[in-house]
């Protein structure tokens, strides 16, 4: 079984985002780490590999040179090999361009199962897994809170709040994205950490994937950022505070919960 895990290095949560003059995220300064949900995806791949001696886990990232740390983390956790897609032309890629590159890398590797995080902490789009699946022409099981890989099928449980749990099933090859609710990832032992040093990391430029520079990066993206304005106090939105008599506040809260499907 060939498992590909898509991992991304993201700015550390408490450091927050900073934007460069071209409105892309500053990725080479300040602390960064493996995206938390991707950590869970790697952990799930290891659990799937237990009792499957033929399982081979490849971690793939697309990112600037520093993103290699995401791959190192994945290898320490237990992935077998890693691929780093790196090319100056990729700078500024939107979700559509990113999915083009990742799908090409996965296609070149060959796969039965692609595991992703359900959302990345920097863009937070939750779009890349579905886009990669669409490009690969396979089903996707997104937002898995639990993942069960059987011999012929893959099953996920999804809890959308309110105690409403849905179980979805599909046959591989397919893409699964997992949430952090899959459980606390296991911390690697010493042997695994030491062994990781010898594991190979391949670096692939765009040419290795048959993609033209003009198809990706700021030039090839279908969406552009025009302005990014920090909000004072980091508050989520201007009118987030409901005030006044308790009944009015309660109604406002109930409306909000209903809107987000929690009622």
């Amino acid at each position: 079984m060939r498992i590909v895990v898509l991992v991304k290095q993201v700015p550390a949560a408490d450091a927050g985002l900073a934007f460069a003059p071209d409105l892309t995220v500053v990725r080479d300064a300040g602390p960064a780490a493996l995206n938390a949900a991707d950590w869970c995806a790697v952990d799930q791949s290891l659990q799937i590999a237990v009792g499957r001696p033929d399982a081979r886990i490849t971690a793939v990232t697309m990112g600037p040179p520093g993103a290699v740390d995401a791959l190192r983390t994945a290898l320490v956790l237990g992935a077998d090999t890693a691929v780093h897609v790196q090319d100056p032309a990729l700078h500024g890629s939107d979700a559509l361009a990113t999915s083009r590159v990742l799908a090409a890398a996965v296609g070149r590797l060959g796969f039965d199962l692609v595991l992703c995080g359900s959302a990345s902490a920097d863009s937070g789009m939750s779009a890349v897994p579905a886009m990669v699946a669409e490009r690969l022409g396979v089903p996707a099981l997104c937002f898995a809170d639990r993942l069960l890989v059987r011999s012929q099928t893959v099953e996920i449980q999804r809890d959308d709040g309110c105690g409403d749990r849905r179980v979805f099933v599909a046959a591989p090859p397919l893409v699964v994205s997992v949430t952090e609710r899959c459980g606390e990832p296991h911390y690697p032992g010493y042997v695994s950490r030491r062994g990781a040093r010898d594991k190979p990391i391949s670096v692939w430029p765009l040419a290795a994937l048959g993609i033209e520079p003009a198809e990706v990066g700021l030039a090839g993206s279908a969406s552009i950022v025009r302005a990014a304005t920090p909000r004072r106090g980091g508050r989520r939105d201007c009118d987030v505070l409901a005030m006044g008599p308790p009944a009015g506040v309660a109604t406002r809260l109930a409306d909000f919960l209903a809107e987000r499907q929690f009622l």
């Binding site: 934007f19 969406s223 552009i224 990014a228 920090p230 989520r236 939105d237 987030v240």
Partner: peptide, 20 residues
């Protein structure tokens, strides 16, 4: 032109689509 709330609202981002 859209306004996006990113990073839980720490930034307000204005974006638009240039293809499709």
């Amino acid at each position: 032109v859209v306004v996006q709330s990113v990073q839980g609202g720490a930034y307000r981002v204005e974006s638009s689509v240039v293809r499709g």
